[in-house]
């Protein structure tokens, strides 16, 4: 469970986040959608303990941020893996359950390769395996697929959904793509232009598992349009 209450963040008197409150229930998948510079990344940095200069409350499974574990999947996968470590070593960065996740994500044949021997998609799969292997209280994704090919992105989204359905890990997924947000999440939170403020929350009641067909349904379109409408209003 993730509880964010009255979160305010300023940098040099300029507000980045304005009174943001989000509650993710245990096992819930929440997507955050908003324009560039709305403080999405700042929000994840605060939740993960990377940024400690803010006012408000953040509780993860009833623990303060410093005591909680966040599996963070960064946007820039080229830099977020350690180039001197193999896939296996990267996944086992601070955990002992790496092997299981390497297998689960189909990375076993790549386990002894180095990041410079991987494709973009394989790199991000390694990052995801690392996040799960850490056995986190909550998973954080920061636009993880924004630099990938469209076809690979679709596959990655299905992988993320599959893993979530199996594990039911509480997930906060920042996205700049309304279709991605609707496809993955139980709930989409739309943030406003800087300073980031919650504009709207949209519940996504599409049945799971969602597939390529789901993306073609009328219901999917309606929900996506709702997100875009909230965004542009």
């Amino acid at each position: 469970m993730l509880l964010i209450k009255n979160l305010n963040k300023k940098i040099n008197e300029s507000a980045i986040l304005d009174n943001v409150s989000i509650e993710c229930k245990e096992g819930e998948f929440v997507a955050i959608f908003g324009p560039n510079g709305c403080g999405k990344t700042t929000l994840l940095n605060i939740v993960s303990g990377l940024d400690v200069e803010y006012t408000g409350h953040v509780k993860i499974n009833n623990k303060v941020v410093a005591d909680a574990k966040c599996g963070f999947v960064f946007q820039n996968f080229h830099e977020a893996l350690f180039p001197w470590m193999t896939v296996a070593q990267n996944v086992q960065l601070n955990s002992t359950t790496g092997k299981k996740w390497i297998e689960k994500l189909g990375l076993t044949p790549l386990a002894s390769r180095y990041p410079y021997q991987l494709s973009g998609g394989q790199k991000q799969l390694t990052s995801i395996a690392r996040a799960y292997a850490y056995e986190p209280d909550v998973l954080l994704f920061d636009e993880p697929f924004s630099a990938l090919d469209y076809s690979i992105t679709l596959k990655m989204q299905e992988t993320v959904q599959k893993l979530w359905m199996e594990t039911k890990k509480t997930t906060l997924f920042v996205s700049h793509d309304p279709e991605e947000a609707v496809f993955l999440a139980d709930r989409v939170i739309v943030l406003s232009q800087k300073p980031g403020k919650i504009k709207k929350e949209i519940t996504i009641n599409l049945p799971r598992p969602r597939t390529a067909k789901t993306r073609m349904t009328k219901k999917f379109f309606e929900l996506r349009n709702k997100v875009i409408e909230a965004f542009t209003k």
Binding site: G49, L50, F74, F82, L93, N94, Y134
Partner: peptide, 28 residues
Amino acid sequence: NKIRLMVAKAYKLPQLETFTKVILPEAA
């Protein structure tokens, strides 16, 4: 690399390990 230092911090890697596993190879 700032991002990799952030990764080490986000994954709460102990300080000594951050030094030997991240900063040292980073400087290599």
